[in-house]
Design a protein around this nucleic acid. Structure first.
Lengths: 124, 124
DNA sequence: ACAAGTATGCACCTTTTGGTAAGTAAGAAA
DNA sequence: TTTCTTACTTACCAAAAGGTGCATACTTGT
């Protein structure tokens, strides 16, 4: 048997805890697009532009395990599956919506900041 | 000269844009601890538990370039430097505070979810 | 017989992120 | 002269995240 212990997670603060659930490149976007209701896998893939199958599935599985989304398999052929927010997921995306609006308001400032960084990266 | 072009960033949505600025393991925590006022480098390092010098400096430099924090060098020996939020940074952390509260409220649920995942990872 | 459509699974690889350990500068204190 | 402090910097390595392409199952349409 394995000696490795499952360490109980401890967080620096609430923000730290939240980040463990919704952090990363894709999860926020997945949550965002599930806001308006359940979405099929293929639909989600089109919405979350640039995500690969591997990443999308992986993130969906994790989020399901974490209890923020739920998966429904209609057992049809061709396959039909959809994903939706659990109550926990709904409360999470609600907590994220001010951040979303912040991003909208500051889109151009952010675009400017990021291109400055790209320029700096290119120089080194 | 380099052929590589600086691609102008385009975002899927506001959330996407926000994530480019505050995403990652350390930035949210740095913002969080700068909330109450300017902090010296060493102080910040103690607050953001577990961060290495390399990561802390790297993140601080990026955030400065992005315009969310500013650096003040007092030109003293031994060195004294502190970091504080710019107005943009202040608006950002304000937009993040609901997320922070969400994390606080759901800390135990999150801890449970993460240990389930660790167990799953260990099995594979 | 064959191709199309859908939601995955897997193997392989590259890129990004992160950690460790060591070193530096410069003046003040011992 | 050595030591101490603080804010970094660098080189090297390990781990995690992410991308590509191929495979699968089953049914419907050609």
């Amino acid at each position: 048997m394995s000696v490795k212990r499952t360490v109980e997670p401890s967080f620096i603060c609430g923000l730290d805890a939240a980040i463990r659930i919704m952090g990363g490149k894709w999860k926020p976007l997945i949550l965002f697009f599930l806001q308006k209701g359940p979405q099929r896998y293929g639909e989600l893939k089109r919405l979350v532009r640039g995500v690969s199958d591997k990443m999308l599935i992986q993130q969906l599985k994790e989020m399901e395990l974490h209890g923020v989304i739920s998966r429904t398999d209609y057992k049809e052929i061709p396959p039909r599956v959809d994903y939706s927010l659990t109550p926990l997921g709904q409360s999470l995306i609600k907590a994220m919506s001010p951040l979303c609006r912040w991003g909208e308001k500051n889109t151009s400032a952010i675009a400017g900041a990021l291109s400055k960084q790209q320029a700096a990266d290119a120089r080194s």
